[in-house]
Design a protein around this nucleic acid. Sequence first.
DNA 1: CTCCATGCTTGTAAAATGCAAGTGATTGCT
DNA 2: AGCAATCACTTGCATTTTACAAGCATGGAG
Lengths: 142, 142
Amino acid sequence: MTPTDFRSGCPINLGLEVFGDKWTLLVIRDIMFAGKRHYREFLASDEGISSNILADRLAMLVERGILTRAEDPGHKLKAIYSLTQKGIDLLPIIAQISRWSRTHMPVDPALAATGEARDRAGPAAVEAQMAALRAIHLGNDA
Amino acid sequence: MTPTDFRSGCPINLGLEVFGDKWTLLVIRDIMFAGKRHYREFLASDEGISSNILADRLAMLVERGILTRAEDPGHKLKAIYSLTQKGIDLLPIIAQISRWSRTHMPVDPALAATGEARDRAGPAAVEAQMAALRAIHLGNDA
DNA sequence: CTCCATGCTTGTAAAATGCAAGTGATTGCT
DNA sequence: AGCAATCACTTGCATTTTACAAGCATGGAG
């Protein structure tokens, strides 16, 4: 995890080296907005991620400290994925991507609704959503 | 460019289908912050993009309406790339990626400076930077 | 007229992705 | 107890994308 592992120390580049692909942020989207916590749930995404790619991305996200993986108490086969603070901090990026696409791409109106509501509610809505994720994933009640 | 060309109509997905790779946003970064306008300039990025990948991405960005390509008047071999409004609207995404990396990744302090300044200046700084880009790339003096 | 810079192509090897099937452990059902 | 379904992944292989190095046609400068 030293700087020399990366192509450059540019902030934009470092972000892209972590989530600069077609799938990583979709996994984050699903855990953030669809409440998915299990492998099978992620696998059933609208976009049809392959099982090997999903396994690879989940392992990478855990290794990079964006997700954690825990066993489901009382169900040894089930793994539960949770967001870390580092993962929750991706929300503003995702919110901006949503905004750009809703302005410039042919989005499905039904899928655009939550983003539109967030934009209408102003910047505090992102903070509120992050606080809610902290409560769920980090157990913070603050 | 109909919705059926894409894996799904989800705003996050649609954004990733356009710039969800390791290179596209670096090209945008270079035209936005380093003032690069020519192929050879993009080719000389810190991260070392390959010439064929660069050609592919530039063509894609033009086709998608994020960049335009024009001949340099008085120098027929030179092509000048400019941002469209759609391209300028990517700035808030890039600003958020920068912010996340500066919080969570081992960024080069020298390269973090402009992002830190932007954050210190508050949300209006992003608007101001977008206005400056409009002046340069769209010829808007407003 | 020569030499260099221009924006790309081309060829080929390596890596990532996509797809279908399979795996071993566990759980719920009867 | 038995047995099928469910769980989180692996594995093998075809296809696509990327990386690296070299080359190319044209325009401009001296």
